[in-house]
Amino acid sequence: MSPEPVNRWHARRVTRTLWLVLLVSCLEALAAEAAQRWVWRGDGVSLTLEALPARSVAAFYAARGFPEAVARDIASACVLQTELVHGAQSGKLRTDLSQWRIRPQGGRPQGLSPKTRWMAKFEAEEVPPAALVAFRWSTFPWRVELAPGEQMRGMILYGLAPGLRFDVEAPLELGGELLRARFTGVRCPDDEKPTKSEEE
């Protein structure tokens, strides 16, 4: 075989592989969108946001002792399960939710409501102490520091309307280097807010 056909054969192979990579990436993105899950990966670190159906969130907090009306309010506050995985070989991985910025479509960038503010609200609503303990530990920590191999999972309340799309910018620090995890078009869960009669 002369060199030219070999080169052409290699070029075709590379092109096909690139198309395949693109196709699989698109399929992966479509599957994630269908599952209401958004994943960012970089430098061995991954950050995953997953929309949780409002009904499941309401049922979870009601089972933990929240009055049903309060559990429904939490569920309609755009709750996303968040998982941060430190898969890099070295360096501490840190993030501070006070540095995260969210931008609702057509809106201005804003920060997240601190967990303490939610808890103060629930205390005012006379939520039982055991339920507050569950809320504290089921939500993503406000500040996280992970060593290699560690991971953290918890819920974040974005406080946005059901069905609203928004972008998230989550600064992460790995071994002193800044990583910017960005998500565009994240969607708040919009399954119908459970009504009292449905629950009964």
Partner: peptide, 10 residues
């Protein structure tokens, strides 16, 4: 799998 694997104790 590598990304998700938990490492040894810290």
């Amino acid at each position: 799998a590598t990304t998700a694997a938990a490492g040894p104790l810290t």
